[in-house]
């Protein structure tokens, strides 16, 4: 338990000026993370450039806890693409594959139908009652990159909030007491 005493002593020995400096470097880390996220949003055109897979409906390609990199882009969506979409009235985005596309000749209107590779039927049952098709405004992005397991961290942090606070607390303390 030496490190606790060390940490405590370090904190006690610091003067206000040092507290402000360390506080600012903490702020710098937070704002840098925000900047990277916002830049990714700008480049990919997606409101959420990285998503965690939450269900097994795309197994065996994607499992719960894997992460996907999204890109929205300008090109219209085509069948076979894996998209992440929001359904009206549900907060949780869904990762599924487009199996039907009907693109109108006039105006920029596309009707799409999706299905999970691991699901038996298509997604019309998941949409709002009366909603037969997905349109561009429902689409958050198309999956273009994949990394397994990494997203498990956020799932654990969401399921057990105390893990999140513990992690934030420890990281904050480390930054405050770090000597540069």
């Amino acid at each position: 338990m030496d490190w606790i005493r060390d940490t405590f002593n370090t904190l006690r020995a610091m003067n206000p000026r040092e507290y402000i400096t360390q506080g600012m470097s903490l702020g710098l880390i937070v704002t840098s993370a925000l900047m990277i996220w916002k830049t990714l949003m700008l480049v990919t055109g997606s409101e959420s450039p990285v998503v965690v897979v939450l269900s097994g409906s795309m197994e065996p390609a994607f499992y719960r806890g894997d992460i996907l990199f999204l890109n929205l882009g300008k090109e219209p969506i085509r069948t076979g693409e894996v998209v992440v979409f929001n359904v009206d009235g549900r907060d949780i985005p869904i990762v599924h594959r487009v199996i039907k596309v009907h693109e109108r000749a006039s105006q920029n209107h596309i009707d799409m139908l999706t299905k999970g590779d691991n699901n038996y039927g298509h997604d019309r049952v998941l949409y709002m009652p009366g909603q037969d098709w997905l349109n561009m405004e429902h689409i958050m992005g198309r999956a273009c990159g994949y990394v397994p397991y990494v997203g498990m961290v956020t799932i654990i942090m969401n399921d057990y909030p105390f893990v999140k606070y513990l992690l934030i607390g420890v990281l904050g303390l480390l930054v405050l007491t770090s000597k540069d």
Partner: peptide, 17 residues
């Protein structure tokens, strides 16, 4: 078709592991 400039319908698919 007259109303749609493009219609795409997937007819069959398979996962090859």
């Amino acid at each position: 078709t007259e109303t749609n400039q493009l219609n795409q319908v997937v007819l069959w698919d398979a996962i090859i592991q």
